[in-house]
Each structure stands twice: as structure tokens, then as C-alpha cells.
Amino acid sequence: MTPSVLEVVLLVFVLTSALGAALLKDTLAAVMAFAAYSLGISIIWVLLQAPDVGLTEAAVGAGVMTILLLIALANTVRPSEDQLFERVRPRTVLAVGAFVLVMGATVPALPAVGATDSPVGSGEVTDYYLDNAYEETEVHNAVTAVLAAYRGFDTLGEAVVVFVAGVATLTVLRTEAFA
């Protein structure tokens, strides 16, 4: 299927803000570009019919992540603004360009965006969840059903990761807030 105008605009916006984050010398400007990037990509999630991911991305990606970056900036230093953009080194551009070309060469082998016969869209697991999620869990939202019921241990593992990350952060910063 061909992209709609809105999708093209969003993709261009997202790629431009990612480039801005990469090339702006001032760290605060890069953080702002990254926040715009997260917001743009959360709208793309909604267009791709993934509202749960969109909500999480907007709250956590654009919200919490920006706050974390700003706190880190407030506790460190902003490089002096003698120039607007980073110096671009041709050697790195060449290496990354080669990487992009190799990855890009594999793209036509993938199923088209939105293909109804793609392995994910018509897979056995997908059909099982869609057919049985409501009878087995009585939750209408299949994403919630899979997250909390079918893959509940996965989500428990995720909670463990977040807990460990919290402990690690406090240890690294030697905070005694909970001592």
C-alpha cells in the first residue's frame, strides 16, 4: 500500500528531528529535538493502529525520557555554543552510509507495509490471540490480554528490570534518600 500524505509528513518530521538531535551541537537543543522526535513517533504508532504503544511512547518516551535527560543536563554541563552544528567527519559518514546501504538492500525482501499475507499479520500466534483472547481472559483489548495473561511472566521480568535499574541508579549516584 502507498503512504498517505500524513504518514509522509510524519516520517519526514521524525527523520528531520532525529537528524537535528544528531547534528545540533548544543545538548539542550538535541534533547528538545529528541522530545519532538518521540512525540512524532508516538503519532506514527497511533496511525499504525497501535494506540497502547502510542500512549506509552508519549508518556514515557516523550515525557519521562525528556525529564531524565533534562535532570542529567542540569547536573552536568552544556558545551559552549561556539557553533550551531557538530563537525561532520566524512570517514564516519562513509561507514554509516555503507551500513545504511547494506541494510537498505535487504528491505525489498520484506513483505510490503500492511500486506495482509505477511507472516506476522496472518501468523498462527496472531490468529490464536485474536480468536481466543476474549474467551480465555475476558479482556477486550488483546494487547492487555497478552501483556498481563499470556505473557505475564514476561511482564514480571520487566518489573524486575525496572526495579534493578532503580537500585542501580541510586547506587551509582550514591543517593541516601532511602537509607
Binding site: M1, L48, Q49, A50, P51, V113, G114, A115, T116, S118, G121, Y129, L130, A133, Y134, H140, N141, A142, V143
Partner: peptide, 10 residues
């Protein structure tokens, strides 16, 4: 994503 597909609220 599947073309014409709705969000998975069954």
C-alpha cells in the same frame, strides 16, 4: 500492521 486492520480491541 495490516492494511484496513483495526486496533486489536476484539
Amino acid at each position: 500492521y495490516v492494511e484496513g486492520g483495526a486496533a486489536p480491541v476484539v
